[in-house]
Every structure is written in C-alpha cells, then in structure tokens.
Nucleic acid binder design. Structure first.
Lengths: 239, 239
DNA sequence: TCTCTCATAAGTGTTGACACTTTGAAATGA
DNA sequence: TCATTTCAAAGTGTCAACACTTATGAGAGA
C-alpha cells in the first residue's frame, strides 16, 4: 500500500539530494547556534539570512519555526527571533531532566547489554583513561562523546536517544559551559568505570543510579564554576 | 532595555490578538490531531487547510514545521505531511521515557512540597476515589488530569513539565489508547495514594519509585489490552 | 537644552503566483 | 486482455511583492 518499492529514490543520498531547503537551512542554522557561531541573545535577521544563503525568506522562516520548537531560538511577534539565552535556573532544570533520561538509558542498557557492547564500552573507557593521564583533552573529548552516545543508543530506546541528544545540544547554549572543559577528568573517569561495572553486572538499579549521579555530578561541577565566576565578577548586575 | 513597559501591549489578551497566524494554526491543528479529529496516517493537505482556515499556505507550512518538530506529524518530501502513526514499540518507548520524567517530578516534588500542595493533592485524591466508587468516568478523567498536572507543575521544573506534557500529548496518537479508559481504576487509585504518601513523607527516593511505577503500570495495562486485541483479531497482518 | 511629535527606514507577517514532482488514469500498442 | 506510455491534474517547494508593525532619528516647540 505504502510500499517504498518504486524505482524512484531508496538510495541513501537521495534524501539529501531531494531535501527541501527548509531542512538544510534548519541543520545549518542549528549547527551555527550550537557551535557558538551565533551567540545567545543574537537576532536572526530573516532577509539577511536569506541573502546569505541565496534563498527567499519562506524556507528560512520554516527552518526557524522548527528551531523554535526544538528550543534553540525564541520568537517575539513583530520583533524577530533570537538565539535562546539560558539562565542558570534553566541550566539546572535541563541537567536534572538529562540526569533522569541518562539514568533511564543506563537502566535499559543494563537489562539488555550484550558482551560486545560491554567490551566496546570498556575499550572506550581505557582509551579515555589514557587520554586523561596524558592530559590530552583533544583526544578525550570525542571519546567521551562516543562513550555517551554508545550508552544512549545501546538502550534500544530511540525516543530516549533523540531526547537526550536534544538536551545535550540545548545545553550548548549556556555561555559558561566551555569553562568545565577538562574539569574533574579523574572524577569523571571514576564515575564512568562504575557505570560500566553496573552495566556489566546487569544490575538495572545500580546502573540507573550510577548514570544519574554522573550527570548530577557534572551539573554540580558546572554550577560551582558559575558561582565562583559570579563571585569574582564584583560588579553587580541587575536581574 | 527590554522593559515591556511601553503603552503598547502588556494586556493579557494582547498576545492572543497579535499572535501570528502560524501560532494560532499550530495550536488549532495540534488540538485537531490530539483530539483524534485527524486520524493517524491521515494527510494534511496544505491548500485544503489554507482554504478551510481562510489563510494562505505560508502560515500553514510554518505551523506544520512546528508540529513536525514536536513529533505530531511526519513530513515526506514532495508527498506531504502525515499525522504520525505510533507503533506498539514506539508507545513502549514513550511510556518508558514518560515514566522516568514522572519519577523525576515525584522526586523533586517530595524535596520541596509545601503543606498546601500536599493537601491539594489529597483533596484531588479523595474526589477521584469518590468518582471511582460511583463509576463516574466523566468526573474521574479531568480530576486525574489535574492531579498529574499538579504534580509535574509542583516539581518546580518547567522544562520537565513541558516535556512531560508533550509526551502525554504524543501518546494520544496511539489508536488503542481509549481502550484503557477506566481500566484498573482501583489499582490506579491505590498507586496515587502511595505517591501522595511518599510526597507527604518528603521521601524523594520512595516518591520517585512510586511515580515511576505508576506510569510503568499504566504501560503494562495498555500493552496487555493491545496484545489481547491482537489475539482476538485472528487475521494475521504482515509487518 | 530637553522633550515630544512625526516621518522615514528596517523588518516581520502574509499573500498569490510560478516551477517542479508525484500520482492516476486514459490512450496506445502488443 | 494486459502491459507500457503518455499526459493532465493535484500537490508540494520556492519565490517576489505587498501590508503592517516596530525602531530610529530629525525637527518643532517649550
């Protein structure tokens, strides 16, 4: 009935070739925002973007609506759309939700993990410890990312994985996030090891707790830095 | 600087008056989908909708993009957008994530709940038990909704509340959901009572478990019905 | 000099029209 | 009768132009 068997399409790059402009622009803009190329609070000028990408405003507006739904930008009627600016309170909220999601991922993974998955995680763990020992942050960062991706993907719950990724992306909107880079690498690794141990032991409750705590710990580290930073900045800012 | 003090606007209905068409249409379409007025798999014809609402296709397309991001519809290039159709596997996924979110809500609420909140929940609880005893489903349903809303709002985490609501809405896309109406009312009430007890006791861990289990239990009830329904339908369907 | 008014410019909200793709069925051929 | 081709209708993707709102700055009045 709805079989996708006709000779048209079905090739992997077809989706990219036939992708509507709005989709392409949405990805483009998202990466510009997440990468920090567009700063929080900055305005997204429609005609300016249209000119820049060589398209009309229609597709731009559609892309922006999608970004709005994802929580990356905020639209104000008749004024424009702005890159979302996260308050410390919102960051705390995001981290709490992320902790719950990651805890669920750990729990599900512990219930269904194969030997292959466990050894893959252990290999990543070893590589990360090596990188941490060498203070090689450039190597550590992508490994860390892969490690977390492997866990949420391994949970087998795609909805969960998508949500988790969305939250991680949104957290990139927070200005001070880069400050934590490499903060508490040793602590993080100790937590990683416990997570894998719980998964290997097929202990869902332990795994959930370990994964949850890992994110909660990252939250605490970040908030501590933010507080210190605020204390150092002696000038008082209203609001 | 950005003070909303000028004489323009500031009235509560101003947001509604100045709301762009795309926003209005988005809400309208969403309610049509969630209410079942538009069935899963059904196509959203742009020009048909434009004519129906008396607007052009631009705002319609923008609204649809927002709905796509929220997971209510699925867009296929050059073919159209369709109301999302949930498989049983996806429903299971959604329920698992919802359980984790609701567990977090219970945990947070237990950490910060005031006397007023607890007594409000207890009042709702009593009313629900009364309705259940009278087999008054029309009274029970909105009370149940208010009860759950009070919990997620009471958590104090707006991000969490928004996410939870989104998931509940998405679950309405599942065809067999209505079958559970009133299924296991007594069981549900027993679980509700435990949840409130945990909150009143200010016991975060207990509260989280109780809230989590409540959603998990709802999932089990639904899946059981689905399985029975599938068994009754003797005709074998591929896929 | 300061404040208020008002006109101009910039930008968003919306529209109708055009181009390309897909779909379905009629027409053609074996 | 059946398969293939062709063509028109429907629908989505994109664009350029118009309408309305907001922001900015110059000028008049005090």
């Amino acid at each position: 009935m709805v079989s996708p068997s006709s000779r048209t399409a079905a090739s992997p790059d077809d989706a990219a070739r036939n992708a509507p402009l709005s989709k392409v622009l949405c990805d483009q803009l998202e990466s510009m925002i997440v990468s920090g190329q567009m700063k929080p609070g900055e305005r997204l000028n429609e005609q300016q973007l249209a000119q820049r990408f060589g398209v009309s405003r229609g597709p731009i507006r559609e892309a922006v609506r999608a970004l709005e739904g994802a929580g990356f930008v905020e639209a104000v009627t008749n004024k424009g759309v702005f890159v979302r600016q996260l308050t410390v309170a919102e960051v705390r909220e995001l981290y709490d939700v992320r902790a719950a999601l990651f805890g669920l991922a750990g729990r599900l993974l512990a219930e269904r993990s194969s030997e292959a998955t466990v050894s893959k995680l252990e290999a990543l763990l070893t590589a990360m410890e090596q990188a941490a020992a060498n203070r090689d942050f450039d190597a550590y960062y992508p490994l860390n990312l892969t490690f977390h991706e492997a866990i949420v993907d391994g949970s087998g719950n795609q909805t969960l994985a998508a949500q988790y990724r969305a939250f991680v992306k949104r957290l990139n909107l927070f200005r001070a996030r880069s400050l934590v880079q490499g903060g508490g690498l040793a602590v993080s690794n100790r937590e990683h090891r416990e997570m894998v141990a719980a998964i290997a032991a097929r202990d869902p409750v332990w795994a959930m707790e370990a994964h949850w705590r890992h994110v909660a710990s990252a939250k605490d580290r970040l908030l501590k830095v933010v507080r210190t930073e605020a204390d150092n900045a002696l000038g008082s800012e209203d609001r």
